[in-house]
Design a protein around this nucleic acid. Structure first.
Lengths: 205, 205
DNA sequence: CCATCCCGGTGACCCAAGTCACCAAAATCC
DNA sequence: GGATTTTGGTGACTTGGGTCACCGGGATGG
């Protein structure tokens, strides 16, 4: 698996420059990639797998923001790396995930040398910003049933599978609600023939 | 009022470059600066006044995200301008506000010519990103009473006044709730000696 | 000066969703 | 194989906060 496949917009010299200096790294499923308060010195490019980006509250609650997949970059790590400041979010590998770490000083070089890198960075900011706006919309304007539906659809889209292998408890954590609420809403969705419920699994119809 | 005062980190040549090509503009209180769906071709730098950035829902609800004051730049206009794509938020002048519009092609020149501009852009992204995270935290983890308290404190900080000249209805819109709820919560805050209520005005104690 | 509008206050009510308690089935551990 | 944990289902209850109705007092305008 190399850069070319996932980042097709990059010109060959850019790819070469990254491959020469950047550090590939692999994370096992469930491994923490970035934690709240941690200093960030490199930007993360995702080659394979899936990373979950979420916010933690003081009281132990968590709140899913979005996922990163192959071809994505972590906007937060970009911003933090460029300021060598701390991350305000958590990043955890959902599956076995391989990434490339682009250290700060390389990042700055690429920025001035390669227009395609610069544009990639801008696109990344834009994409994450839009995702945050969508999150705010949902939590501000939508009820739990709509949020749950959206959550399941997004999950299915991200993974490309209609079978969602998550327990009700895990879904509840991501939405910062309780298991009972998720159970009940899923039951209602089943009655509306939107999903079929299995153990540890929700099938989207 | 010129750039130097509000953007003290900029070197003289940068200021000169901006002043030569960028367009100053003034908005009256209440005027719409940017609306949802509008194409953005320039980045906005705020010299004087205050701009409210908020999100609109399909059903007419609105939701305050943050304010921009002197020395701030609009990250969304940056991102949009650089992609010449549409804004996903509303921007309205809260008071008489003067800004400088930096057109796209100038923006790109400055980016490569001036390190201090580049860093300013990064700082801006970071600041807005953090503000969005704070918004998400509040709406995800906090109840209305805490959100109201935070809202009032922030307003007082932004304006530098303890007297907040807003009707309950206006506050309710910003928090996407109803006037009655705001009235009741303010009454409770008054009983706790946190505020004193006047007509069209909340005094922070 | 009267009519109308905006503002704030309040009681009654309702609903979404969080909490508590408990249970049964499946999975996992020793 | 028995014990414990995880998972999901459900009824009962509470609570935050949204809605409705109504009222009075100040502001505004013809």
């Amino acid at each position: 698996m190399n850069l070319q496949n996932q980042f097709s917009g990059f010109e060959p010299e850019l790819i070469e420059a990254i491959e020469k200096e950047a550090v590939p790294k692999t994370f096992a499923a469930g491994e923490v990639i970035m934690r709240t308060g941690q200093y960030i010195k490199s930007t993360i490019l995702v080659l394979e797998g899936r990373i979950k980006i979420y916010r933690e509250s003081d009281e132990g609650g968590e709140f899913l923001m979005y996922y990163l997949g192959p071809g994505d970059a972590c906007a937060i790590s970009m911003i933090c790396a460029l300021q060598s400041s701390t991350s305000e979010v958590m990043a955890v590998a959902e599956e076995e995930t391989s990434v490339i770490l682009v250290p700060l000083q390389l990042m700055e070089q690429l920025m001035t040398r390669f227009k395609s890198w610069y544009q990639f960075v801008i696109r990344t900011y834009r994409a994450r910003f839009d995702e945050l706006l969508a999150v705010i919309d949902h939590v501000a304007f939508r009820n739990m049933d709509e949020r749950l539906e959206f959550y399941l659809k997004r999950y299915a889209d991200e993974t490309g599978r209609r079978m969602i292998t998550l327990s009700h408890q895990e879904i509840a954590s991501d939405l910062n609600t309780s298991r009972e609420v998720v159970s009940r809403l899923l039951k209602k969705m089943e009655q509306r023939n939107l999903v079929k419920l299995h153990r540890n699994m929700v099938e989207l119809l």
